[in-house]
Design a protein around this nucleic acid. Structure first.
Lengths: 234, 234
DNA sequence: GTTTGTGAAAGGATTCACAGCA
DNA sequence: TGCTGTGAATCCTTTCACAAAC
C-alpha cells in the first residue's frame, strides 16, 4: 500500500487534491452562488456571506475551501473570480463533458432538454432508446438511436458519462452495456440499485425516495406533536 | 428541555421512533427491495441478502432495522411481509399523501406523469404554473391552474407536500407561497438554495450538481492515475 | 476592527467482532 | 450451525474557538 501524504502536489498538469466527499458535494453549490455574485459584479465574498447563500455555517465554508489549497485574504474574504476558476478546475469543469442519455421516456425527454446541463458544460452528445419506434425521432437537436448502437455512439462521441433514465427493468442491462462500452461514470434515475464493477463511479437520483423521506418527517411531526414543537422552537 | 428515552413508546396511535437521518434515507430502498422479494414469494430474508440487494454491509442493515424496534429471528432472518408493514408504517406510507406540483415545464411535465409517485402512494392532487397560457391544459388527468390559485388548491386538496419544478428565478417566490398556504414539506428541483422558516422540511434534488460530482471523480481519475489504480485495486 | 485558517472537541455514521439465541 | 442484536472501535463530518493576518 503506497503511503500518500495529504494533498500531494504531483508533477502533472492538473493536481487534483484529495477531498472529503461531503466537500465535493458542496463545491457545485458554492460555484453556483459564486457565479451569481460574479454576475452582480461582486469582487470578494466572505465565508459568512457565502454560508448564508448556500445555507450552512461559515466554518464549514472555510474548511471546505481550505481543502482546495485556495487562500482567502484575512480581513477581506475570498476573491470571487479566483474562487470560481479554482473550484471549476478542481471539479473538472474547465473541460467540456459529453454525456450519453439512455431512455427518452417522460423523464429522459425532460433531461434531454434540461438547460442546466448545457449551462454547466455538459453536452448531451447522444440519445438512446430501446423502443425501435422512437429511433430517428429528434429531441433537442439530437436523433434518438436504437439500443444496439449504444457502443458505437459512445465510441464516436467519446463520452465518459452515462445517464440512465429507463424503466427499472431495463436499467441493469443498460448499465452493463454502458460499462462494456467504456463509460466510467453513471448517473442513474431508474428506481433500482445497480451493480457496477470497481472503477466505475455510480450515483443515483431517486425521486420517489425523496418523497418518502419527506413523508417520514411529515408523519413524525403529525404523530409526535411534542417532539415537533420541541424541534421547531429549538 | 424534556429528557427523552430511546425509542419512547408514546400513548398515541402511531409511535414513530427517533431515527438517524442516514437510516431514514435507506428505509425506502429497503422497502423497494422487500417488495420485490415479496412478489417473488419469499417469506424471509437475511441481513446479508438484503445488504447485497441494496448495496451495503449486513451490519448496517441490521443496525438500521434494529432502530425500528423490529426484531428478526436469529438463525433465520427477517419476515418479509412483517418488515414491509413495519417500514411502511414508520415512513408514514400507510396513509396516502397528496402533492401539489408547481411548474409544468419540461421537468414538471415529466414529474406529473411519473408512475413512481402514484406507485408509492403519492397522488399529484394539483398542478400549478405561472404561465397563464398553460392554465386549463390537462396533464396526466389534472388541469393546470394559475399561480394565483395555489393557496386555494392547497386548501381544497389538503396537500402537505409541495414539489417545486420551476425555473430558479421563480422558486423562492413559489416556496414562500407554499409555506404561506400551509405546506410543511417541500421537494425542490430548481437549482437554487431556498430559505424556509423553521418547522418546514426542505429537500432538494439538483440534477446538474450530480453531474458535477461525477465530473470531479472522472477528472480526478484522469489526472491522478496513480490514485485511481490504487482505489480500483483496493 | 474584520475575517481567514486550523487545531481541538463533539457528534454521527459505519464497521468490527462477538455474545446470545433459534 | 446460522444469523441477529449490539457494545466498542473507527472513521467521517461538523462545530467550536482562537491565534494570526489584513
Amino acid at each position: 500500500m503506497t503511503e500518500q501524504g495529504p494533498v500531494p502536489p504531483r508533477g502533472g498538469s492538473a493536481p487534483v487534491p484529495r477531498l472529503p466527499e461531503a466537500t465535493v458535494a458542496r463545491l457545485p453549490v458554492y460555484l453556483r452562488a459564486l457565479h451569481e455574485l460574479s454576475e452582480d459584479g461582486r469582487r470578494t465574498v466572505s465565508s459568512h456571506e457565502l454560508a448564508a447563500l448556500v445555507g450552512g455555517g461559515s466554518a464549514k465554508v472555510r474548511k471546505d475551501l481550505s481543502h482546495l489549497g485556495t487562500y482567502g485574504t484575512r480581513g477581506v474574504g475570498y476573491e470571487v473570480t479566483e474562487l470560481v476558476g479554482h473550484i471549476s478546475g478542481v471539479l473538472g469543469l474547465t473541460q467540456h463533458w459529453s454525456v450519453v442519455l439512455v431512455g427518452v421516456g417522460n423523464l429522459g425527454h425532460a433531461l434531454a432538454g434540461y438547460g442546466g446541463f448545457s449551462a454547466r458544460g455538459f453536452r448531451v452528445a447522444a440519445l438512446i432508446d430501446a423502443d425501435p419506434a422512437r429511433a430517428g425521432e429528434v429531441i433537442a437537436g439530437q436523433p434518438v438511436r436504437p439500443l444496439a448502437e449504444l457502443a458505437d455512439a459512445v465510441a464516436e462521441t467519446g463520452v465518459s458519462i452515462g445517464v440512465i433514465a429507463t424503466p427499472a427493468s431495463a436499467a441493469q442491462d443498460v448499465c452493463d452495456r454502458l460499462v462494456a462500452a467504456g463509460v466510467t461514470s453513471i448517473l442513474n434515475f431508474a428506481p433500482v440499485v445497480l451493480q457496477v464493477p470497481p472503477g466505475v463511479d455510480l450515483r443515483k437520483v431517486d425521486l420517489a425516495v425523496e418523497l418518502q423521506i419527506l413523508s417520514f418527517h411529515q408523519h413524525r411531526r403529525a404523530a409526535g406533536a411534542v417532539d415537533a414543537v420541541a424541534e421547531a422552537t429549538a
